[in-house]
Amino acid sequence: MSRSKSAIQEPTVISDFKEITKMRLSLSVVFSSLAGYLLGVDVIDLKVLVLLAFGGYFMVGASNAFNQIIEKDLDALMDRTKNRPIPSGRMPVNTAFIIASIFTLLGIIILYTINKQTAMFGAISIFLYTCVYTPLKTKTPISVFVGAIPGAIPFMLGWVAATDNFGIEPGTLFALQFFWQFPHFWAIGWFLFEDYKKGGFFMLPTGKQDRGTAVQVIMYTIWTIIVSIIPVFGFTGELKLSVVAAVIVFLCGLFMLHYAVRLFREMTEKAARQLMLVSVSYITLIQIVYVIDKFIR
């Protein structure tokens, strides 16, 4: 009996741990960091690569855990989040806080072993996400702007880990992921509008599913496309892009823009969901193209 019980409980504990740290999101952020590292490094150091992966995962996991502690009462109001470990009662707040604290310490220590700047930017991302972005979500749509800053740090963080230097190159990587987050999060805010409203979250720039929001989605998608091809013009130091890669990146951007325009035309939750899915594919593809281009150029 006890064996069958533990067999049932074990996946629950594991799945709750994945949920409190948002494992899938954390792994996608780690992917961004590793792509940034590969772009910045001359000779790949597997030890640094592994440290960056674990350090990045701990930092993002900590941010997500702190976020769920702060928003536990609001999460209980929304269908999307009411079954999370804390609002459902499966995980005590104290347990989540211990996990978040341990992850923060481990993340900063591991990133510090790479270099001080990497640890500093990691710490800044946790602070902004937890102490600024999370409280602002229920007060103003500007929260998306604030949240885009820690969200854009990972791609840049990889370059800083590789070079111990912050300049035009990691700044460009930061700008690319920064602008991309607006159409991405506004698409999510659009198709989850009613659910977010239950929790009192203001995610859309106009506060409504209207033409004003759709126009801004298009504008920020265009900014994303522009920033993504800037390295081909040679303005970004060691961050370079071949003409062929720039064309591929540009075409990927036009594909995403097509779905942004579709949202403007159709104004539906289905169109917003499609844009969100395309935006995830877009940022992943862009990072892969950048890395492949560097190593075959």
Rank of each mutant, 00 (worst) to 15 (best):
P231R: 05
A271Y: 08
V227D: 00
C252M: 12
A272T: 09
M219Q: 12
A246T: 00
A260L: 11
T268G: 09
W223L: 14
I248E: 13
L257N: 10
E266M: 13
I225Y: 02
S228Q: 02
E269D: 11
E266P: 10
T224A: 06
V227T: 07
V244G: 07
L239Q: 04
R262N: 14
V280Y: 02
F264N: 12
E269K: 13
A271G: 11
G234D: 02
S281Q: 11
L275K: 01
V278M: 12
V244E: 15
R273I: 00
A245G: 12
I229S: 01
R273G: 00
S228L: 04
I226M: 11
E269M: 07
E238K: 03
R273T: 04
S279V: 03
I230W: 05
K270V: 11
Y220N: 10
Q274S: 09
R273P: 04
K240N: 10
L251K: 00
I229E: 02
E269F: 00
V280G: 02
L263N: 06
S279P: 05
V249R: 04
I226K: 01
F235P: 11
A260Q: 04
V243T: 09
M276V: 00
S228H: 01
I222S: 10
R265D: 08
R273Q: 13
I229F: 03
V249G: 11
A272H: 09
V227W: 04
I225H: 02
R262D: 14
S228Y: 04
F235R: 03
I222Y: 06
T268D: 06
G237C: 06
T268Q: 03
L263E: 13
I226Y: 00
S242N: 09
M256F: 08
S242G: 14
F264W: 12
G237K: 01
T268S: 15
F264A: 10
Y259H: 15
L254W: 08
T236I: 07
I229C: 01
I225M: 02
P231H: 03
F255W: 14
F235N: 10
I283C: 01
I229N: 01
R273C: 00
V278H: 08
I230N: 06
S281C: 05
Y259F: 15
C252R: 02
M219S: 13
R265N: 14
W223G: 09
S228T: 08
I283D: 07
S281M: 11
T268M: 07
T224N: 07
F233P: 03
M267S: 11
K270F: 08
F235K: 04
E266F: 07
M219L: 15
V232M: 15
V247T: 10
G234H: 12
I226F: 11
L263A: 08
L251A: 14
V227E: 01
Y259T: 05
M256G: 08
A260H: 08
L275E: 13
T236V: 13
I230L: 15
G253A: 04
F250P: 03
M276D: 09
I226L: 14
A271L: 11
A271W: 09
L263D: 14
K240Q: 13
V243M: 15
Y220H: 13
M256S: 14
V249T: 08
K270C: 00
Y220V: 07
L239D: 06
K270A: 12
L251M: 14
